[in-house]
Design a protein around this nucleic acid. Structure first.
Lengths: 88, 88
DNA sequence: ATCGTTAATCGGCAATTAACGATAAATGAG
DNA sequence: CTCATTTATCGTTAATTGCCGATTAACGAT
């Protein structure tokens, strides 16, 4: 994991809503976009964009299943990320 | 450390140059702005702004000594930050 | 008191971000 | 096939970011 990738994850987590989304995903393991929309005071499109950013950074993955998409944290990436930070 | 503060630190680290600045500060413990300017291909004003962001996020502190400012990582904040991430 | 050094700030510009509503795409149900 | 549900994308707007050169501020030394 190089600096660019590390910075990309930091950047993705650099917004309170996205931090909370990741915390929520870790807590409940997996969930669909709509459930997250219900939790936060933002529109569906806004939440979808936040999820997109988290996905693009690689920290979250989404599995399309029918009309729904199940999102979850990529544990492998998260662990690599944790390892980097612990080594700081 | 609440979500807002965590997100602020994430955001501050969400740029490759700032990640590298922090890595450098940790490695050499303390240094002045000019030394960082010499390392990176950016102007003095740009580096100063990056340092400002890191300071405002609380992860770095700067101690003015004469015309120089000595920067270093705030170990206490860094440890709290590490603790948060490990708890994820 | 002035000069050289160092860092912070200002003004500006292009690019990106965060938010929204509206629309489109995909699928499952009836 | 059509409709409801769910998510992604588009277009827009205001605000923020990243970078620069130029300027200012603070200080030590001469």
């Amino acid at each position: 994991m190089d600096t660019e990738q590390i910075a990309r994850i930091f950047k993705a987590l650099g917004h309170p809503t996205r931090v909370k989304i990741v915390e929520h995903l870790i807590r409940i393991n997996t969930c669909v976009c709509g459930e997250i929309v219900d939790i936060f005071p933002y529109s569906q499109s806004t939440i979808s964009q936040h999820l997109k950013q988290l996905k693009e950074a690689g920290i979250v993955c989404g599995e399309v299943e029918g009309p729904k998409t199940y999102f979850c944290v990529d544990k492998h990436i998260l662990n690599q990320f944790k390892a980097y930070i612990n080594a700081l």
